[in-house]
């Protein structure tokens, strides 16, 4: 299939991009890596009036340090994220999850920011960003604003990025030292989206779990934090039994969909198993 016709803009700066979005009419789509957008357009499930291609906006690419945070440009490709030593050092959870995204070819084109703004509930990076308490820097006609991850994912395929706005970068707090991390993904075939996945980051202290952050992929229209699990883990002994007991809360407050990969009750079951496994691995057990 061939996409429906559209107007095409290719800005080279964020300001130009914002102008192009403003000038693009009713239905503007921002093209980052295009690895979800182009298939949807080919199937004519989306037929935007204007496509604004960020491919030439150099300032949106790359990973840098800024004090206690890593700053990941929205247009940094998945392969660049994987190859980046700062990510490997400070946010291995992102690398682990990114490695599971689709396949090599898609990772060469697909971008970190694009995946987050697309906010596919089955996508791998939103739950990771949520678990890591990332912050999203959004540019708009009125300037820039920063949105914490808990406010960024609004609904199914919907984020805090408003009309006329653009995600420019994501700030991820460095979690150095005693943190362990694990992204536990469950799908049927290698290149598929997650049926359920769990992103866990665990800080151990003296045989106990001092702090745990658990993000859930595809357990509802948006990525979720497994708050009850985190609370149960906080201060718990770092033992398989304690972790299993905490993980049993993983499905609380979730509303997963039922589709041909999994019905809701099975997804909820998977969440508990995968949470136990992710936390156990992250805790180094």
């Amino acid at each position: 299939m061939i996409p429906a016709p559209f107007e095409y803009a290719r800005p080279t700066t964020v300001d130009e991009a914002l102008q192009a979005i403003a000038a693009g009419g009713e239905d503007v789509k921002v093209l980052a890596g295009g690895q979800s957008l182009i298939p949807v357009m080919r199937l004519r499930l989306a037929a935007p009036e204007t496509v604004v291609d960020l491919g030439r906006v150099a300032e949106l690419r790359g990973v840098r340090e800024d004090g206690d945070a890593l700053v990941i440009g929205a247009m940094t490709t998945h392969s660049d994220v994987l190859a980046d030593p700062l990510i490997q050092q400070h946010a291995p959870l992102i690398a682990q999850a990114t490695e599971t995204v689709a396949d090599r070819q898609v990772r060469h084109r697909g971008t970190f920011g694009g995946a987050l703004v697309h906010a596919d509930p089955a996508g791998d990076l939103p739950a990771v960003a949520l678990a890591l308490d990332a912050e999203f820097v959004i540019a708009g006609p009125e300037g820039r604003r920063t949105v914490p991850a808990r406010d960024f994912f609004v609904d199914y395929l919907t984020t805090a990025v408003g009309e006329g706005e653009l995600l420019v970068e994501v700030r991820v707090p460095k979690l150095d030292g005693q943190w362990g991390m694990r992204y536990e993904k469950f799908n049927r075939v290698a290149q598929a989206w997650s049926i359920v996945a769990v992103a866990a980051a665990v800080r151990r202290e003296n045989g106990h779990i001092a702090e745990a952050r658990v993000g859930l992929t595809n357990m509802g229209p948006t990525p979720l934090r497994a708050g009850a699990v985190e609370a149960a883990l906080s201060g718990a002994e770092a033992t398989p039994e304690a972790i299993a007991a905490a993980a049993a809360h993983a499905a609380e407050g979730t509303e997963p969909s039922s589709d041909l990969n999994a019905q809701a009750d099975y997804r909820q079951h998977l969440a508990t198993v995968l949470t136990r496994r992710a936390v156990t691995a992250a805790a180094g057990l």
Partner: peptide, 18 residues
Amino acid sequence: TETTAGVSTEASSLGGDR
């Protein structure tokens, strides 16, 4: 794909990537 005819959906207003 339910049909080959195009249908525009309410999706992420600025989304479309992975």
